[in-house]
Structure formats: C-alpha cells, structure tokens
Design a protein around this nucleic acid. Structure first.
Lengths: 212, 212
DNA sequence: GAGCTGACTAAGCGCTTGCTCAGCATGGTG
DNA sequence: CACCATGCTGAGCAAGCGCTTAGTCAGCTC
C-alpha cells in the first residue's frame, strides 16, 4: 500500500534503547497510515487496531491513548527530520554544496516518507499540549539550522537575499509542502525531485552560476 | 479575532445571484474559523451554531449538512483563487511582469485569507465526493494557468527551467504553504511577503536580472 | 383578526466514539 | 505440577456526535 520507510524511525526488536515489540510497531504503522489518509480526528481506535490485526482493547496495552500514538509519531518524525537537516548543514563543502544537499535530502524525505510527513506537518493542532511543546522546539531547531546556513552563505558571498528569515521560510516551505501533494503516481522519483528542488533553491538564494 | 476578508467571497444581502441572508453568512463565517482552527472533523455543529449565535437546529435551515458548509467554503475559496490567478496571468506586460504579479497576489491572498486558505487546502479529504470533483477541477485549472505562464516565459527566452511542471509545482507550493504558517504575529505584512516571494520566484525561474 | 410563512429553539433520537474491564490462552519458572 | 506474568479478546459503558422533530413566535396578507 505505502512505500514509507517507517522502519527508519522506530527500531523494532533487536536492541536499541527505544526498541519496541512487534505489536506496538504494527500499531504505529497503522496509525501513521490512518492519520495521514483521514486525519487524526476522522481516525477511530477501531480503524487503527483493525489495521494492526487486533481488537481495539489491545491498543491500550501498548499506548495510553490515541493521542499518545500521534505524539510518538510526531516526535519521532520531527527528530528524524532535524537529524537529517543537521547532518546536511554540518557536512563537507561550502555553504552552496551543503545547502544543495540539505534541500535534496529534505525534499526527497518529504516525498518518500510522505505519510509520516503529512502527520508530522498537518496534525500538529491535534497534539496534546505537552507533546506540542516538545515538537515546537524541534521545529524551531530545524528553522534555525536552515537560517544559519543561509547566513553562512551570505557571509561567504555565495548567496544574496533580501531577508534571511523569509528565504529560510521559503526553503522549508517548499520541502514540507511536498508531503501534501506527492503521490505514488507522481512522475518524478523522490531523488529526482530533490535534485531539481536543490537547483531551484540555489537559484532562489542568488547563488551565482546555479543554472538549469 | 480574524482578519480574513470573508466578505470578498460571499456577497451578503444586497443583490447578486448568490446573495444570502445574514444568518447563513454568519454560519459560513463561523464554519470557516472553526474548520481552520480545529479541522473539519474536530468541529461540531454545536461549535458552529454557537459561534453564529444560534441553536444547532438552525444550521439545518440554511445548509443541508455540516459537509455542505465545507463544500461551499471550499468551492468559493477555490473559485476566488482561480479568478485571481487568471486575472494576473492574462494581465498586461511580458511573462516576467505577469508572473511577478501572479506570485505577489497569490502569496498575499494566502497570507491575508489564511483561515479560508487552510480550509481550502487542508480539508480536501473531508469533502463529499461530488464536491471534491468540482474542487479538483478548479485546482487543475489553477495549475494549468501557472504552467502555461511559465511555458510562455520559456518560449520568450525570459525563463529557463529544467522541468516546467516541477517549476509550476514549486511556485504554487510556496504560495499555498503560506496559509499554513502565516499568523497575525508574522513580522511581514501580506503585501511585503508577496513582493519578496515574487522576487524569489523570478530568480528561481531563471529570469535574468532578477536580483536582490 | 384569521390564516399563513419563515426563522428559530428545546428536547432528544440513534449511533459512534475513546476507553475499560473481566476473563482466557500461552509459555516460562519454581 | 502449580503459579503467574504477558498479550490479548468480547462485551460494553459514558459521553458526545450529526441530525430530526414538534412546537413557538414575529411579521406579513387579505
């Protein structure tokens, strides 16, 4: 049904501090797909449990509530995105090369993991307040990484932008919105899309010689 | 509470083919704000009716269902967006000038009318099937207008893009996503944001001399 | 003033929701 | 063998949902 690599976000059985039994993992997977397709409020605990091959009551053995499932998905999804952004921003090369890599991976992630991406970006309002606080902090960190990289590029004379914060918004915006519209039937692979968006963003930031 | 110019979308009493009594208008306004803030499924008919100053039963005198309210909001919002895009794309000047105006107005509309914009772009999955068909056709028309304008620019030698469809996606994507993140507390006015996004998009499309 | 209409409300129906609980099977341990 | 922890199910509860119904009332028409 879906090609989302959920396994990247939650290690299953073999070790790892937050490893979880297979049933809890199946519930996460079912919740991600239901929340992404119908939204949090339109998804019932019966939907999730049935998709995971259990009765509704079994859900409450592994998670205290439906909202806790959402919180865990949102937390892990944001943490993975921040990690991806940090790795690209702190990588090798000049600001132009690092920005290119950042956009390529940010974009292709939002295409590949679009089901997780939808939950992460469009179900924030359904999060319990304490979970929202955790997630909001992660989002701020992501924004800060992008802003800092643009500033580094400007300082190095590689970028030229009127307003760094607006440019940073535009960069993250482009990537996030991919999870809204990308589907199995899209003509480009996530990686192709990432490469093209990388080019578009470099030109947008005024990187000289970023042609085609 | 909100600064959304809902009045632009639905003429009230004085004439017009689709003029509607004040109570129906109040229900629309209340529904837009509730759907935008909490989402369609988390909004109850009691929420809407109370915000409009009526009992829940009064809603059903003016609209056949909660979903019909959403359908009307989505239809009118999409129609207004298409009109805005058509006007800008068919306006005066070369493709560069028209694209600049299109992005400026598309962006500032999504900032100004962000409550309507959120319902329009993020509650599509809650639409009844027939209403979805109408709206999907309008969305396709919007995409086609943008694509055609980019193609005109490429033909005139003013733009240079690897893939027209990808570039069109990026342009609309940037504008749509504004309705997700823009708030009262944003540091830029909708018009400032529009102007800056206009510049960013022209550079993204490879328009020569689009500096700053 | 009788008769009618359109906008509205109080009450509530039938159903679904998130979640609970008593009990059952399984398998490891003494 | 008895014991118990673990993972689960079937049945179901209280609350809240979209929507309906019967009836009220102001204002218009003749």
């Amino acid at each position: 049904m879906t090609s989302t690599p959920i396994a990247d976000l939650w290690p299953t059985l073999p070790g790892g501090a937050d490893a979880r039994p297979e049933a809890a993992y199946r519930l996460l997977q079912a919740a991600v797909e239901s929340f992404a397709e119908r939204g949090f409020h339109a998804t019932t605990t019966r939907d999730i449990a049935t998709a995971a091959g259990m009765s509704p009551a079994a859900l409450y053995i592994h998670y205290p509530s439906k909202a806790a499932l959402l919180a865990e998905i949102s937390r892990a999804g944001h943490a993975a995105t921040l990690e991806l952004v940090r790795t690209a921003a702190a990588g090798e090369g000049d600001p132009v090369a690092r920005m290119r890599r950042l956009v390529e991976e940010f974009t292709s992630w939002h295409a590949r993991a679009r089901t997780v991406g939808r939950v992460v970006n469009y179900e924030l309002h359904a999060l319990p307040q304490d979970a929202y606080g955790v997630v909001a902090a992660l989002r701020l960190d992501i924004e800060r990484e992008v802003t800092a990289l643009i500033e580094a590029g400007v300082a190095a004379g590689a970028f030229e932008v009127a307003e760094v914060r607006t440019a940073a918004r535009a960069v993250t915006s482009l990537g996030i919105d991919v999870s809204r519209w990308y589907t199995d039937r899209s003509s480009e692979t996530p990686e192709e899309l990432g490469r093209r968006y990388g080019e578009l963003v470099l030109r947008m930031l005024g990187a000289p010689g970023a042609a085609l």
